[in-house]
Design a protein around this nucleic acid. Structure first.
Lengths: 142, 142
DNA sequence: TGAATTCCGATCAGAATAGTCGGGATTCGG
DNA sequence: CCGAATCCCGACTATTCTGATCGGAATTCA
């Protein structure tokens, strides 16, 4: 299982724009300067704009601005905008598709996992991103 | 983001074999009878066998048997065998590949998420699967 | 007017996913 | 020993997804 670069790039762009919240429109050029292909990022920012997470200003000196509150916008919002809702398998999305659904243990597990992951994604806001300590996740469990 | 059918089918197969732990070898035919393409499942069981999670008996009346303790085999073990280790993006797998790694907030978030998901997967054993209540995951969050 | 910049649809190469095919190897029952 | 049942395995295919790239239209600023 992988999160694609869409999610990664998109999250980076949101992070970048959040940290330039009051600096006026940021050009694609600037945002992409960490090594993201400019024309590819352009597509991704289109998705973020259509999701209402960023706004754009066209023309010379134009660019992108964050259009949401970083304190209340979660990584789930961003990932959803970039990759569509999390679906761990087809039968999660289309309950009707699986005739064994009612008694399917796999389905119940899938459902639980989907929920946990979404909860995890929804638990981190853009503002939180700076505060996460890399080592924190490395603590061994109990 | 999706877990592929590999993970789903593989987990189903493990669940099936766990519940026929003492019934002798189970044929591919039987395991696949819920609607999984037989020849495809054959490939997947090969992966599970090579991972040591199932054993096989060849020849007539042959089939597959679970080769691990369902009480101590987690969904993570199964998913890893089927899909390889969870990687949320390239730069997680290849730290060297990203020259911005040391100060990359996105990377820290990715890392935290990877860890959370793995912990979640590792927290459910095959034996647990029957006990999961579908409604449990639907509780709204505080 | 012209440079900067976003917007947008089309196209493309490579990888992964999902599945199929054909035949080889092994074992059991008779 | 024979034949059916069954696993084993490499090769093949079709479809979709990913990660771009291209070319140009529309907009805005100076």
């Amino acid at each position: 299982m992988k999160l694609s670069t869409r999610g990664k790039y998109g999250l980076y762009a949101m992070y970048y724009l959040a940290s330039h919240k009051d600096d006026g429109p940021q050009s694609l050029q600037n945002i992409a300067s960490v090594g993201i292909p400019r024309q590819y990022l352009e597509q991704l920012l289109g998705s973020l704009r259509r999701a209402g997470l960023v706004s754009s200003v066209r023309g010379a000196q134009g660019g992108y601005q964050i259009a949401c509150d970083p304190d209340h916008t979660t990584i789930l919002d961003v990932i959803d905008a970039m990759e569509g809702p999390l679906e761990l398998s087809d039968c999660m999305a289309d309950e009707k598709g699986c005739k064994y659904a009612p008694k399917c243990a796999v389905r119940r597990v899938w459902h639980k996992l989907t929920d946990s992951i979404n909860r995890e994604l929804a638990g981190i806001t853009l503002s939180d991103m700076d505060k996460i300590d890399e080592c924190e996740a490395d603590q061994h469990v109990g």
